[in-house]
Write a protein that binds this DNA or RNA. Structure first.
Length: 812
DNA sequence: TGGCCTATTTTTTTT
DNA sequence: AAATAGGCCA
């Protein structure tokens, strides 16, 4: 009886607080199910509750398979299902990880061994170059990247090497790619390696060619769920299809309006035709939005209506009207970055918001730079969601390459990377000869290196260097079964890796190679703890290979988030800024060829807009510096599709404009009443051929001492607006300043005897907890924007006094 | 062969 | 602006 009661109450928890359509989806058990879920419609909730419901109906956890596109999505799902139905683990993970695991089991069926390696993008690029060379193809009219893209596309569409030549409509590029493809594929096989696309490709092929395997997996995974179904490509479609023939209990969720991975082979038809593919499908539409204000939804809806290939959804919400969406025009990208950082700072000080409430989205990664700079300058904590960064670092890639080679001696790309790092006298010529030898015999390069003596063209001296390396490898190889930590430490020791780093690389605050190595060891320690079983090297490498950008996003960190629009999918933030909504960028210039691409760009903006919960700003500039030079910019055509009457248009050039114009025109208005102004000295002026006027250096001014300007000359008022509001809040003691992770009010700071800003002047020596001691070489800005440039031992850094005062103590 | 300097190119988005 | 490739000298 108690158990019945327990179940009843658990059931209640599962079904409580669901709208009728949500409940319908959650209670659906057998047969195909299509959940069309608009942004913010509680999709994750429905999916997790449905899994819990399946479990409560006595379905075994191991019979359920939940496929996502990112590890983060899978993790979140897992946590939430655990909360609802504790104890029973359901396999949840990315498509790629699922395929990787299955391929380990069935490796031999596709010509691999179970310790196969997964090449990351740069690995496959290396392999591609080698294949192009071996195929004797000229790249004068194309590039390795383009050939790679062609091949990738073929794999996504399940076209094997021998079939690519048959493709009816072949572009010249495809024809070249078709010649490289078999060579590349053969090379991967020789290296016992796969690229990302192969994970799907091999597994799909395996299922097609081995009916027994297909059938047993189909039986095994009785209930399959696929998240973000609109982003599946043909390979993924085929996999899902193959696993739901005898057991067609397939539930997919998605939103055609949020399909943004067409360039990666995603096929919108998969979701648009789902009802045709699975005849007895139940379709549930989740249209109520629980995330955004009506203002934001209207803008999103108006925009997406311009897409022709879509199923219309009526987005609605109960939420009260919020602030109008802001459309803001800036002079240039620097002003954009500065103003956004200022707005965020202001909202943190005056509205009690936290850094984590804000996100800035952009079309491409390069655009985060200016923002990053603006935030650093202000001491605003931020995170750039670009998770691959760490594993892309040279020193990390080097060490991982050793690990790869230890795990898989056939991993040629790893060998090429490692054979002469740290340098050990094996030069380009020697390497080329080993490579030729390997190619000729069709053997892995390490094997060829092992037989260095056989290579006639190789001088004795070089051969012995190579054999030295092979011996080093063998010593490392013995440690393969040790813990990861031991293995790594031994590796660093044996190769004298840190000496090598210290010899060759330059340290800076943003890049400290030795510290990175330590961090990798930490990650290894962590991994050892979680995987105490032996032989986890393979698993570790797989995990590292399959992390995505978004996986690095840390919700718990109290930081402003900077990321691409693609990475933003699935997330939400109270306040969102979307920058550079400009022609050639969004829509991107390379997306102009087909309507499908153009519509995808529109969806990308749609995704960005619908991430915002309460407040949203779209912005563009009049000019922007792209790859070095400043170019005029045209606003995005998408902006003309928005309901402008509903929005707030701000065309302001904040004080920067005023500052520069007024100043270069020869001085400040009289009413400003500034004390001594020093213009950049001759030495700096001669450095600077453009002989721009240096920013003023105010020697004897600070926030506290500024005379009250309120009510002053009209010309001035706009320029000092930020400053006086800062001062007002400072007087009230409410302004919060983030210092070293904590929050303090300005009044606290003053009471605590913090150094008055005026004390920071040129020539003063200061000390910083992480930079060490340095000399102030320049002072600029005023009020809350007052900043100092400090020259430390081997680098320079700028600090905003208002936010860095606690860190920058005056030494003399 | 290896390190350093200069010239050239660039990825839009990512598993 | 930044990263890479190629060229040159020790």
């Amino acid at each position: 009886m108690t158990s019945t009661f327990g179940n009843a109450s658990a059931m209640d928890a599962i079904l409580r607080d669901l709208t009728p359509p949500q409940r319908e989806a959650v209670q659906h058990i057998d047969g195909p199910l299509l959940i069309l879920a608009g942004p913010g419609s509680g999709k994750t909730r429905v999916v997790t509750h449905r899994i819990a419901n399946l479990l409560h109906h006595g379905i075994d956890a191991h019979q359920i398979l939940a496929l996502t596109f990112t590890n983060k999505a899978a993790d979140e799902m897992r946590t939430r299902v655990q909360g609802l139905a504790p104890g029973r683990p359901v396999w949840m993970g990315t498509f790629h990880r699922f395929c990787a695991q299955q391929l380990r089991r069935y490796a031999s069926m596709v010509g691999l061994s179970e310790n196969y390696s997964i090449y990351d993008t740069s690995d496959s690029k290396q392999a591609m170059k080698r294949a192009i060379e071996a195929a004797g193809v000229s790249t004068t009219h194309t590039s390795p990247e383009q050939i790679a893209a062609s091949i990738s596309h073929a794999k996504n569409r399940l076209i094997p090497p021998e079939m690519m030549t048959d493709a009816s409509s072949m572009t010249a590029r495809d024809a070249i790619a078709a010649r490289v493809y078999p060579v590349y594929q053969q090379q991967l096989l020789t290296s016992n390696a796969v690229d990302f696309d192969d994970l799907l490709f091999h597994f799909a092929r395996l299922l097609r060619e081995n009916p027994d395997v297909r059938s047993s997996l189909d039986q095994h995974y009785r209930y399959i769920m696929v998240d973000e179904y609109q982003d599946t490509n043909l390979a993924q479609y085929a996999i899902v299809r193959a696993l739901s023939i005898q057991q067609p209990n397939l539930a997919v969720t998605g939103d055609p309006d949020q399909s943004i991975y067409g360039w990666r082979g995603a096929d919108l038809n998969n979701i648009l035709d789902f009802e045709k593919d699975y005849p007895n499908v139940t379709t549930v539409r989740l249209e109520q939005n629980y995330r955004s204000t009506p203002n934001i939804l209207r803008v999103a809806d108006q925009l997406i209506r311009f897409n022709r290939r879509r199923k219309h959804k009526e987005l609605f919400t109960d939420h009260p009207e919020g602030d109008p969406v802001v459309l803001r025009i800036y002079e240039d990208g620097y002003e954009e970055a500065d103003d956004i950082a200022d707005q965020i700072l202001d909202a943190i000080h005056n509205e009690g918001l936290r850094p984590r409430d804000f996100a800035v989205f952009c079309r491409m990664n390069a655009l985060t730079r200016s923002l990053e700079h603006a935030m650093r300058k202000r001491g605003l904590p931020y995170q750039i969601v670009n998770g691959l960064e760490f594993y892309q670092r040279k020193e990390i890639k080097d060490l991982l390459a050793y690990l790869h080679l230890i795990n898989n001696p056939n991993h040629d790309v790893a060998l090429l990377r490692v054979i002469n790092t740290p340098t050990r006298g094996i030069g380009a010529k020697t390497i080329a000869r080993i490579q030729q030898h390997a190619d000729r015999l069709g053997i892995p390069m390490l094997e060829a290196a092992r037989r260095a003596d056989e290579i006639e063209s190789l001088p004795k001296r070089s051969a012995s260097m190579v054999l030295n390396f092979v011996r080093l490898y063998d010593r490392l190889r013995v440690k393969a079964t040790a813990t990861l930590e031991d293995l790594l430490r031994y590796l660093v020791e044996e190769t004298q890796f840190n000496d090598y780093l210290e010899r060759t690389s330059v340290e800076s605050t943003t890049n400290n190679p030795v510290a990175n190595v330590d961090e990798l060891i930490n990650a290894a320690v962590e991994f050892d703890l979680q995987h105490p079983d032996e032989g986890s090297l393979e698993l570790f490498l797989e995990q590292v290979a399959l992390v995505s950008d978004v996986d690095a996003f840390e919700e718990s960190d109290d930081r402003v988030t900077l990321m691409t629009l693609h990475a933003a999918k699935g997330l939400e933030f109270p306040r969102v800024f979307i920058i550079a909504v400009e022609d050639e960028l969004l829509p991107h210039r390379r997306s102009r060829e087909t309507e499908a691409q153009y519509e995808e760009e529109r969806r990308l903006l749609f995704v960005g807009i619908t991430r915002a919960k309460q407040w949203l700003q779209l912005s563009h500039c009049k000019r922007r510096s792209i790859r070095g030079d400043m170019r005029p910019v045209v606003a995005s055509a998408f902006l003309t599709e928005l309901p402008r009457d509903d929005m707030r248009l701000v065309e302001s050039s904040v004080d920067r404009d005023f500052f520069e114009n007024e100043y270069s025109d020869g001085g400040y208005p009289d009413s400003w009443d500034l004390p001594a102004i020093q213009v950049g000295d001759d030495a700096t002026a001669s450095d600077d051929q453009t002989s721009q006027v240096q920013p003023p250096v105010i020697t004897d001014e600070d926030v506290c001492q500024l005379p009250d300007h309120e009510g002053d000359d009209d010309v001035v008022r706009e320029a000092v607006a930020t400053e006086s509001s800062y001062r007002r809040t400072a007087k009230r003691g409410k302004a919060k300043v983030s210092i070293a992770g904590g929050l303090k009010t300005a009044a606290d700071l003053m009471a605590a005897g913090a150094t008055p800003p005026g004390a920071y002047r040129e020539g003063a020596v200061v000390s910083h907890p992480s930079y060490g001691q340095g000399t102030i070489v320049a002072v600029s800005g005023r009020g809350p924007k007052r900043s100092v440039k400090v020259k430390f031992a081997d680098e320079e850094a700028s600090f905003l006094i208002a936010y860095a005062a606690a860190d920058l103590s005056l030494v003399q």
